[in-house]
Design a protein around this nucleic acid. Sequence first.
DNA 1: CCGCAATACGAGCTATCGCTCATATTATCC
DNA 2: GGATAATATGAGCGATAGCTCGTATTGCGG
Lengths: 211, 211
Amino acid sequence: MPLKAAMTPRKRASQARSRATVEALVEATARILVREGFDAASTNRIAREAGVSIGSLYQYFPSKEALVVAVVERHNRELVTVVREALGEVADQPFEVAVRRLVAAAIAAHRVDPKLHRVLSEQTPRTGALENVEAFNSETYGLFQAFLDARRDQLRPLDLELAAFVCVTSIEALTHTAVLHRPEILSDAAAETLVDEATRLVVGYLAPAFM
Amino acid sequence: MPLKAAMTPRKRASQARSRATVEALVEATARILVREGFDAASTNRIAREAGVSIGSLYQYFPSKEALVVAVVERHNRELVTVVREALGEVADQPFEVAVRRLVAAAIAAHRVDPKLHRVLSEQTPRTGALENVEAFNSETYGLFQAFLDARRDQLRPLDLELAAFVCVTSIEALTHTAVLHRPEILSDAAAETLVDEATRLVVGYLAPAFM
DNA sequence: CCGCAATACGAGCTATCGCTCATATTATCC
DNA sequence: GGATAATATGAGCGATAGCTCGTATTGCGG
C-alpha cells in the first residue's frame, strides 16, 4: 500500500458531467457498503458499481477513506436534519410532550437508512480521517442543550452541558441498540412502550420533584 | 485471499511449551492492537511480536479472526468479572447505594484496559465470528435483571427485561462515552458528579414515586 | 470548427496480506 | 537411546488491495 494520500481531491468538479460522476461514486459507495459490507467496498468495486473508471474515481477522491467520509457526512446530515426538525416543532409544547417527540425523532433518525447505519457503526474502522466523525453528530448535543436552556425554569438546577450529555448519550444508545439489535422492541405496540420508557428516563432525570 | 478457514484450531495445545505459545500469541495480539491499531495487526506482525513463527501461529489459530476473538473474549471476561463482583457486594445494600456502586463498577470496567477497549470498539469490524461478540457482554443484562427482580417490591411495576435493557444500555453508553471521548468528565471531582447523575438517571427511572 | 482544458479511461505496478507446507527441532515414553 | 509424536520454523504462493499514469474522449470558448 502506498503512503496514504491526502484527503483533498486532486480536482474540483466544475462541469455538470463531473458533478454527476462524483454523485454516482458516493451513491455507489453507500450501495456497496449496504449490500456487501465494508470489506467488499474496494475502490475498483466502487468504480465498477458507479459505472465509472478507477481513474476517474481518483480524480475526485484521493483515497478510499475520502469516499467513506463523504458517505458518512451525508448520512450524518440526514440524521441531524431529522432531529433538528423535531426540535423546531416542539418549541412551545409542554416539557414531557416535547421529550416524547424528541425520543420518537431519535428512533426515526436511526431508521433513515438502518442498514447503512449498521455498516458504518459496526464495520467501518474509526481510523485516520474517520476518527473524529461521530455516528450521532455532536451537533445534537448543542441543539439539545439549547432546548434545555430554554426551559431551565421548569427543571431542577442543572449543569446544562452535563445534562445534555447524559440525555443525548442515553437516548442515542437506547434507540441505536433497539434499532440495530432489538427489532422486537420496535414492532407494533412495543415501539410505543420504548418511547414511554425513554421519556420517563429523561423526564425523571431532569424533573425538579423527587429526591 | 484464500477462502476463510474454520474457527477451530488445527491442534489443541497439550504440552506446557505449546500452551505458552498460545498465550504469547494472544498477548502479542492485544499489545499490537493497543500500540499499533487493528490494521497493523497482521498475522505476520503478531507472530513476530510473540517471538513465534508464522507457522506456529497457524497451528493454534486457524485465522486472524480467531486470534482477535480470543482477545475479545478475554477482555469481556475481565469486564463481566468487575460487574459481577460489584453485584455480589451490594446484595443487601439500600437501593440507591447499590445503584451508585454499580455505576461506579461500570466505570471501573471501562477502565480495565481502556486503550484495548477503544481499539476493539472503534477499529475492529464486527464481521464474521465477531458479529455476535458484544462489547459489554450480554450476560450483564441478565445479571442486572436478577438484581432488579430481587428488589421489585421497592420499584414501580416494571417489565423487568425492558427495564434492564434501558438501565444497562444507558449506563454502558454513559460510561463508555465518558471514558473514551470525555476524559474531562472523569478527572478528580468530576467523576463523582457523573456517578451522581447516572445514579439519579437510573433511580428516577425505576422509583415508584413521581409521575 | 478549431484548440485547449476538463473529464474519462483502464492496464498494470507495488505492496502486503492471509495462509500453506516441506522440513527441522524438541519432548515423551519404553 | 531410539522411535514416534508434538511442536516449531520461515520461504514463498496466490490473491487482491490501493493507486498511478499515459492515453483517449468530450465539452466549451472563440
